[in-house]
């Protein structure tokens, strides 16, 4: 499912809304999550999951093609942890 398919589904389920409003709702949600992560904040949506930032220290890496040593500078990566309820939905038997 792509973002536009998600918008289509929501528009079908909410015929009283303009499609452009549905688009703005979906964009706002993901933009709000992105903004929080950009500020270094955590996002916690119970039942769905949480987003946080993990810091990766600078390290000595290697160009896998040439074998040359390169330094990889410190970086931050977004991390998602699946919420309990969603994990259980994915694994109904256990």
């Amino acid at each position: 499912m792509t973002k536009s398919e998600l918008i289509m589904r929501l528009a079908e389920a909410n015929p009283h809304l303009y499609q452009r409003d549905v688009e703005r709702i979906v964009s706002t949600i993901f933009e709000e999550i992105s903004n929080a992560l950009e500020n270094g904040d955590r996002v916690e949506v119970r039942g769905f999951g949480s987003f946080s930032i993990k810091r990766r220290d600078a390290r000595a890496g290697r160009n896998p093609r040439t074998g040359d040593a390169v330094t990889v500078s410190e970086k931050c990566v977004p991390y998602f942890k699946t919420g309990k309820q969603l994990r259980e939905r994915l694994n109904p038997s256990s």
């Binding site: 709702i25 706002t28 709000e32 999550i33 929080a36 904040d41 955590r42 996002v43 916690e44 949506v45």
Partner: peptide
């Protein structure tokens, strides 16, 4: 500074 459902709803 944790963003939750409440902040997402407020943004919408």
């Amino acid at each position: 500074s944790t963003v939750t459902r409440a902040q997402l709803s407020e943004a919408v």
